[in-house]
C-alpha cells in the first residue's frame, strides 16, 4: 500500500504475513489487549528480518491508543523507524495519526517518547521534502538517532536503497557531487554502490540506466475503439436493408 515509485528492486522484501497475524487482523482479536505481545514480537521480527507490515503495525498502535497503560515506548519508535523507510508513502503519517494528540507539542509533553517521536518526525519531514543531504547530516549529528534505529537491522542501507530508487526515477544523469551527498557516500563507495544498480560513475557525472520514470517521453493517449461501439450502427444497417 505504500506509494513508492515502482522499480525492479524492492528494497524491503514484502514477505507474506504469518498466518497467526493474519488471523488476528481478520477477527476481533485485533482489539484484544492480550494480543499486544504478539504484535510486539512481530515488530521485533520485522526489524530483524527487514520485512514490513503496515496493517499489523497500525493495529498495534490502535491497541496502544485504546489501552495506554500497555504502551511500550521502544516498540512505538521501532514502528516509526520502520515506517520511515517507506517514504514517500503515507505510512509514517498514518502512524502519527494514531499516537496521542499531545505528542507533537514540545511545550506539553516533554517526556522521552514524545521527544523521540518529534525527532523522527523531523527526519520524516526531511525525507518527504527530498532533503536527503540534510537527512544524513541531521541523522549523524545526534546520537539519539543511532539508539532509535539500533533495533532496525540495516536501516542505513535501506534508506540508501530508497533514496537511490528516487534518484533513479528523476534523473538519467546527475552530478556525482549531488548524488554522493544524497546517499552519504564517498566517491569510491558510490562506485561500488552504483555498480549494483547499473549506474556508471564517469568523472563528475553519474549515468543512470533508463527506466519508465526517467525517460520523460511525451505520450499521446489514443482512444480505444471497440467493435461494440459500432454495434448499433451495424445492426441498423441490417434492419434497413431488410
Amino acid at each position: 500500500m505504500a506509494a513508492t515509485i515502482q522499480s525492479t528492486t524492492t528494497p524491503i522484501p514484502l514477505d507474506s504475513r504469518p498466518e497467526h497475524i493474519e488471523n488476528i487482523l481478520g477477527g476481533l482479536d485485533r482489539y484484544n489487549p492480550e494480543t499486544v505481545s504478539v504484535f510486539q514480537d512481530y515488530v521485533q521480527y520485522q526489524c530483524e528480518n527487514k520485512t514490513y507490515d503496515c496493517l499489523a503495525n497500525l493495529a498495534l498502535l490502535k491497541l496502544y491508543q485504546f489501552n495506554p497503560h500497555l504502551t511500550r515506548e521502544e516498540t512505538i519508535t521501532n514502528v516509526l523507524v520502520k515506517a520511515l523507510t517507506m517514504f514517500p508513502g503515507p505510512d509514517f503519517s498514518l502512524c502519527l495519526h494514531l499516537l496521542p494528540p499531545n505528542i507533537l507539542d514540545p511545550a506539553i509533553s516533554p517526556e522521552p517518547l514524545a521527544d523521540a517521536v518529534r525527532k523522527l518526525t523531523h527526519l520524516n519531514t526531511l525525507l518527504e521534502s527530498a532533503s536527503y543531504r540534510e537527512f544524513w547530516n541531521t541523522y549523524e549529528a545526534d546520537d539519539l538517532y543511532a539508539d532509535l534505529v539500533a533495533d532496525c537491522a540495516g536501516f542505513e542501507d535501506t534508506m540508501r536503497d530508497m533514496i537511490a530508487l528516487q534518484t533513479g526515477a528523476v534523473a538519467r544523469e546527475i552530478r556525482t557531487e549531488v548524488v554522493s551527498g544524497w546517499l552519504n557516500l564517498g566517491e569510491e563507495e558510490l562506485k561500488a554502490f552504483g555498480e549494483r544498480l547499473g549506474w556508471k560513475v564517469e568523472g563528475d557525472v553519474v549515468k543512470l540506466p533508463l527506466n519508465r520514470e526517467n525517460e520523460a517521453k511525451t505520450t499521446v493517449f489514443r482512444e480505444n475503439v471497440t467493435f461494440n461501439q459500432f454495434q448499433g450502427v451495424v445492426k441498423r444497417a441490417y434492419e434497413q436493408a431488410a
Binding site: 520523460a216 511525451t218 499521446v220 493517449f221 482512444e223
Partner: peptide, 25 residues
Amino acid sequence: DFALQGDIVHVSEAKVGRKLVDWYL
C-alpha cells in the same frame, strides 16, 4: 512529467489525442 539530465530538465507531457469515435457515430 520531467526527467533530469545533469542540469537540464526535460519536460514531457501526456496528451490526449482527438476523440473521433463519438463524432463519427
